[in-house]
């Protein structure tokens, strides 16, 4: 991590969203570029959170408050990054498949991906295959993520992938959820699966080589 951003990073990792936003604004005011604040300050801090989560050093509440702090900082930076035509590491569309209303896992993956510098479009829960097709057409993501908690709904992931392929879309699809494993992912033609949200970030990194 970069020493000049130590305090900002401590605030973010500790989940202090008020302090994180204040310090981000302070860096902007003092002339730091938004890219530097993001890439040298905020993203490395979120990587620390992600690593600690993966290693079982922190848990969901700590990740959620850190993500909220990240969001508060991004509220300051986003207009500046947009003005500077800043490119994210890549775009990921996420959704829970039809028949399934559970979103905790999907949301957590979204949190971790945003924290790692990806743009995330969350299309919600109970999504039919056509909704995923429409979202891919509209947002042109680098990766599409499908979530399912239930053994009854995980089978619908194959329907989504088949519908995408028959629509001529070759976007890599990753799948996740409690009952999903690598064998199942391979069987339905997914590009991969991950047991944890941190693993999902690594998987997306592998699927977007330039990220």
């Amino acid at each position: 991590m970069t020493p000049e951003f130590d305090e900002l990073q401590t605030a973010l990792i500790g989940g202090n969203h008020v302090r994180t936003a204040e310090m981000t604004q302070s860096f902007v005011t003092s002339g730091a570029t938004p890219q530097d604040i993001l890439e040298k300050g905020l993203l490395p801090a979120m990587q620390v959170v992600g690593r600690r989560f993966r290693d079982g050093e922190v848990f969901l509440p700590e990740v959620l408050v850190a993500a909220r702090a990240m969001k508060s900082a991004m509220a300051v930076l986003e207009p500046l990054l947009a003005a500077a035509k800043y490119q994210s590491k890549g775009k990921v569309v996420l959704g829970t498949v039809k028949g399934d209303v559970h979103d905790i896992g999907k949301n957590l993956v979204g949190v971790m991906l945003r924290g790692a510098g990806f743009e995330v479009v969350d299309i919600g829960t109970g999504c039919a295959a056509e909704k995923f097709v429409d979202a891919v057409r509209k947002h042109q993501p680098h990766v599409l993520g499908l979530s399912a908690l239930l053994t009854t709904t995980m089978t619908y992931m194959k329907t989504v992938i088949d519908t995408l392929r028959s629509s001529g879309m070759d976007v890599p699809v990753i799948v996740g959820g409690a009952p999903v494993n690598a064998e199942f992912a391979q069987q339905i033609g997914a590009a991969g699966t991950a047991r944890t949200a941190g693993d999902a970030v690594e998987l997306v990194h592998r699927l977007i080589p330039q990220a």
Partner: peptide
Amino acid sequence: GHERGLMVLID
């Protein structure tokens, strides 16, 4: 709400 509830544990 799940996410809000989990954050309240820390806040």
